[in-house]
């Protein structure tokens, strides 16, 4: 199985020199991605064609956006299991409003507002009521999906708005002569979001506070960092990004039906884990999460190309996450302190 090549790749490069080892361990996510890409390109012809790469980008877009918010929440030592439901709520509300003829701007704004409010609720439940994040967001996972279904009257709703269609269809730099479809606009949106959040994490007080809280909450509090406020804000941001994920989902599927986005929280967490973030908080980078999401969807795409039935893909995802986490764990352990 393809995933088993990961730890071996790690080990063979480990015994050269300390410098190389440091390079490998700090860039392991990227190296794994490159190695997998090369391996997949060599073993499956159509894998590295531009159109297929664009395909991977399009397929990963929703989970990648959710994974930005999840990275932030995991950085502060929390977790948000409700992103799949929250995504569904946002695109459900927007779809219903569009269906009633509401202008796209208003519909999108209200969808995003709703998902941000769910994020706020999560934040308040965790930080103010003191409920464990797993449990609290499990509650909202159940309730929010139901709320969305009730609002949608349990029906499928088509999204026929011109703006959404434009977002879904538009490709950048298509070369029709070479039969190259072009980079999907959705992919550009995802990249821009990652760029923004990579900058936010590195260049704003908020980003610094998030790392401080995740690294040592007590020390951060004793430094005067407004810990609770920053944490609640992080849950709100995660909800907001789930909403954006919902918009992308509505655009790319063109139809909002019950069950949309269910289980995506697990793929999202998988992407964050593949990106090397630590569940205990303080360790992880938004840009590495992007690579993690790319790895995940490369593997899924490769399996599709190799005609591995879609049913196996879920099993493979779970095992992939396990293999990477176990190998990270042991790579971390053998590292000289």
């Amino acid at each position: 199985m393809s995933a088993s090549s990961l730890p071996i790749a790690h080990r063979s490069e480990n015994n050269t020199s300390a410098k190389l080892r440091r390079f490998v361990s700090s860039n392991s996510t990227l190296l794994v991605a490159i190695a997998l890409f090369l391996f997949f390109s060599l073993t499956a012809q159509p894998f590295s064609t531009p159109n297929n790469v664009f395909n991977i980008v399009r397929q990963m877009s929703v989970v990648a956006v959710l994974a930005i918010g999840m990275t932030l929440v995991i950085l502060i030592g929390g977790i948000d299991l409700s992103v799949g439901s929250n995504l569904f709520l946002a695109c459900g509300i927007t779809a219903v409003l569009l269906d009633r003829g509401t202008p796209a701007v208003t519909a999108i704004a209200l969808g995003l507002l709703a998902s941000s409010l769910v994020g706020l609720l999560n934040g308040l439940l965790v930080e103010i009521a003191g409920i464990s994040p797993v449990i609290a967001t499990l509650g909202t996972l159940i309730g929010v999906r139901g709320l969305a279904l009730v609002y949608m009257n349990n029906a499928q709703i088509r999204v026929t708005d011109a703006f959404f269609e434009w977002v879904a269809i538009t490709r950048i730099f298509p070369i029709p002569s070479a039969n190259i479809t072009g980079f999907p606009l959705i992919g550009v949106i995802v990249l821009v979001l990652f760029l923004i959040f990579a900058l936010v994490m590195r260049w704003t007080i908020y980003g610094r506070y998030v790392y401080a809280i995740g690294g040592n909450e007590t020390a951060a509090r004793l430094c005067g960092v407004p810990v609770k406020f920053v944490k609640v804000c992080t849950y709100v941001l995660c909800g907001f990004l789930a909403g954006i994920g919902g918009m992308l989902m509505a655009a790319s599927t063109g139809i909002v039906s019950p069950g949309l986005g269910a289980g995506s929280e697990f793929y999202t967490i998988a992407a964050v884990m593949l990106g090397g973030a630590s569940l205990t908080g303080g360790i992880g980078r938004v840009e590495k999460t992007l690579i993690g999401a790319f790895i995940l969807y490369m593997v899924l795409n490769y399996m599709t190309i190799r005609r591995i039935p879609t049913e196996w893909q879920q099993a493979a995802t779970g095992l992939l996450v396990l293999v990477v986490i176990v190998s990270n764990r042991f790579a971390g352990r053998s590292k000289p302190s």
Binding site: R208, Y211, G215, N216, A219, L222, C223, I283
Partner: peptide, 19 residues
């Protein structure tokens, strides 16, 4: 446990209260 964020750099620790 109370003074430092160990994963952060010397600089980031020093500026944390005065960001």
């Amino acid at each position: 446990t109370e003074g430092l964020v160990l994963e952060m750099s010397v600089q980031e620790n020093i500026t944390l209260p005065s960001l």
